[in-house]
């Protein structure tokens, strides 16, 4: 699920950026630092949408670096148990398959794949129904439901299922 929230961060800026572009430098550094990171609490920071306030800088003794407390608005993505996501299959093996929904990695184990789909080894390992009409392989898109998440301080990993109504392959690039 996506959220638009306000976060705060203390930015350290090198003295060489002090000048009339200080604010721009600060913001671009903030974007470089923060976007794409993941915190267990808020999820993945997708994009910074604006700066709320930049506090007074504090010069560090000895180094000359200045610390600015910056409040910024950003879009975060955090997967939840029970959430339905669309994801791209990245790896298929006999244990199940891995998929990615943006920054999130999701694993779907074999027993959470419908019973009529069989694993096929080969050049392009895949899961296929007995009549061959549906095929899950690398690069195809699936809709899945998250049934478990592991949230570490800097990492989120999910386990999903496609063994439910309206879940499964939604677009197979190889077929089209």
């Amino acid at each position: 699920m996506f959220f638009h929230i306000v976060l705060e961060r203390n930015m350290q800026l090198h003295p060489r950026f002090f000048g009339r572009n200080l604010r721009e430098n600060l913001v671009s550094k903030l974007m470089k630092d923060v976007e794409g990171t993941c915190s267990g609490r808020h999820g993945f920071v997708v994009a910074i949408t604006g700066i709320e306030t930049i506090g007074k800088g504090l010069i560090r003794d000895g180094t000359g670096f200045v610390t600015f407390p910056v409040k910024y608005q950003c879009v975060v993505f955090r997967p939840f148990k029970g959430e339905i996501l669309e994801a791209v299959v990245t790896l298929v093996n006999k244990m199940g398959f891995f998929a990615e929904a943006g920054p999130v990695q999701i694993f779907v184990s074999k027993h959470l794949i419908p019973d009529d789909m069989e694993f096929q080894t080969g050049d392009m390992p895949n899961y296929t129904t007995s009549d061959g009409s549906v095929k899950i392989q690398k690069e195809c898109e699936v809709r899945l439901k998250i049934i478990g998440t592991r949230v570490d301080a800097t990492e989120i990993f999910c386990v999903g299922t496609i063994k439910d109504d309206f879940l499964g392959v939604i677009n197979d690039p190889a077929a089209s």
Binding site: M95, G96, F98, Q105, F107, S109, K110, H111, L112, I147, G148, T149, R150, F157, C158, V159
Partner: peptide, 20 residues
Amino acid sequence: TVQEYGCPNCKRKYNALDAL
């Protein structure tokens, strides 16, 4: 249900969340 895996050697248990 999160699938569980076990090591036949050292009997250590894992589950699907460790898959990566």
